[in-house]
Design a binder for these strands. Structure first.
Length: 457
RNA sequence: GGAGAGGUGACCGAGUGGUCGAAGGUGCAUGAUUGGAAAUCAUGUGUGCGGGCAACCGUACCGAGGGUUCGAAUCCCUCCCUCUCCGCCA
């Protein structure tokens, strides 16, 4: 099932970075240009074109590094000479030498400046290039090509026309989209009574399942983060328009914070810049958070109901592991997300993203799609992804394979476990009854204190 | 928000212009000693980049960014963060 990279992966291991291919660092790209181009072409021709110029820049950089370091070496040697002169107290000799060294020093500075500019240009280019698909990912042009891997649970049959969740929710008096719009505009929601309680129950239920049965450590992260954190996960620089940005006084504040689009961002960056010992892996975190998305470019889609909101709740599961464990960890994590649906008794299916449907940072992804009777369709409720070392490189998250060994980039994974708003609406739709009530899933009854939602009188 | 003190290697901590990638200690690793362990002694112990088959060599990094200087962990500027006291506050 898992084709392990392409043949050239083993031909010649790259010197400075991890051996796998899910990486876009300048050295790897310039040494395996055709191969990386072919991999990106599986996503789209446009993505492959993003590589243009990278190899040349990398080569230029190497030359400049060598030139500059040679100058630095000369300068350092000369400075040692000056130290000796200073000791001898020969002021005139020092003065003369100083003139000469000034020139050398200026040259060093020019080199250093040119080098840092070039490196900035390279990293700007690389930051805009998406991850390469894993060899096992099927080719495809749109999400319609995504293969269905399995269908789980029984799609409910109704002897009446099933209502949409917003109709059910409003009739029960637990959902009020009109008043939400009064407060905050379109794509916000307002829950009352059992509706609000259901939202809270789902968050608690999911966190309990992941922490007690799946071995995750619960994390409560900040809901606002720096641009740096978003760069680590791959949301920036390319997807700024999808985010809500906050500022204090100055709209152009360099240190402006962003509202998180998912807990993936703060939780993945928990270990940014760190070196983790091998015996600490895998690390597994589960976090509840609200998520904020501007939904730019989605006008006209899912305008009704709770499917697509500017603010929604989600429990996110995140894993850090050694590279060789990546594939197995993706299966494991996906299973954990699926368990939530199974425990709730919701009918769903699992699809795999084809190459063209992969998100920017992902090397392989599965979506869990829940059945929505009102739409007679499966809709995404969780996306489970393996990022290879793509995020780890951007956020500099490494581990030490051997106690004294060289650090290597680790692999990151995450998945929704699950999107709470969509779970909420799926429960209303799948468990709706002819009389307008909604059966509460067994697993939630203790939290909800009832087995049935009925209109508040 | 006001006043003050600080940010140095895994940790503690010295270092106010050249001999500092950085004393000393702790921790850790290896070896010696021991029946075994403790204690003791010796040696070693950061990361990135460039070169090299390698041993290794070079270079950069002492919160971040800029400046002064032939030369900056050390001097100057800006910013960030932490701590203490005061004020305010869920």
């Amino acid at each position: 099932m898992w084709a392990s990279g392409s043949a050239s992966a083993t031909d010649r291991p790259p010197r400075s970075f991890s051996e796998n291919l899910h990486m876009l660092d300048a050295r790897h790209v310039s040494e395996h240009l055709d191969e990386v181009r072919a991999q990106l072409a599986r996503r789209s021709p446009d993505d492959a074109a993003l590589l243009d110029g990278v190899a040349e820049l990398a080569k230029k950089r190497r030359e400049l590094v060598q030139k500059t370091e040679k100058l630095q070496m000369e300068r350092n040697a000369a400075s040692d000479g000056m130290a000796a002169l200073a000791k001898s107290g020969d002021r005139e000799a020092m003065q003369a030498r100083r003139e000469e060294l000034k020139k050398l020093s200026d040259e060093v500075k020019r080199g250093e400046t040119a080098l840092s500019e070039l490196e900035a240009a390279i990293s700007e280019k690389l930051l805009g290039i998406p991850n390469v698909p894993h060899a096992s990912v099927p080719d495809g042009k749109t999400d319609a090509d995504n293969p269905v891997l399995r269908v789980v649970g029984e799609v409910p049959k109704f002897d009446f026309k099933p209502k949409a969740h917003w109709e059910i929710g409003e009739a029960l008096g637990i959902l009020d989209l009109d008043r939400a719009a009064k407060l905050s505009g379109a794509r916000f929601s307002l829950l009352f009574g059992a509706g609000a309680r259901l939202e809270r129950a789902l968050a608690t239920f999911m966190l309990d399942l992941h922490t007690r049965e799946h071995g995750y450590t619960e994390v409560y992260p900040p809901f606002m983060v720096k641009a740096e954190a978003l760069r680590g996960t791959g949301n920036l620089p390319k997807f700024e328009a999808d985010l809500f940005k906050t500022y204090r006084g100055d709209p152009n504040d360099k240190d402006a914070l962003y509202l998180i689009p998912t807990a993936e961002v703060p939780v993945t960056n928990v270990h940014a810049g760190e070196i983790i010992e091998a015996d600490e892996l895998p690390i597994a975190y589960a976090a509840y958070s609200p998520c904020f998305r501007s939904e730019a470019g989605s006008y006209g889609r899912d305008v009704r109901g709770l499917i697509r909101q500017h603010q929604f709740d989600k429990v996110e599961i995140v894993r850090f592991c050694a590279p060789e464990d990546g594939p197995a960890q993706l299966e494991l994590l996906t299973g954990h997300a699926e368990n939530v649906l199974k425990r709730l008794g919701l009918a769903y299916r699992v699809v795999e993203h084809v190459t063209a449907d992969l998100t920017f940072s992902s090397t392989k992804s599965y979506d869990l799609e829940v059945w929505l009777p009102s739409q007679e369709a499966y809709r995404e409720i969780s996306s489970c992804s393996w990022f290879g070392d793509f995020q780890a490189r951007r956020a500099q998250i490494r581990y030490r394979p051997e106690p004294k060994g060289k650090p290597r980039l680790l692999h990151t994974l995450n998945g929704s476990g699950l999107a709470i708003g969509r779970t909420w609406l799926a429960i209303l739709e799948q468990f709706q009854q002819k009389d307008g009530s909604v059966l509460v899933p067994e697993a939630l009854r203790a939290f909800m204190g009832t087995e049935r939602l009925v209109p508040a009188k």
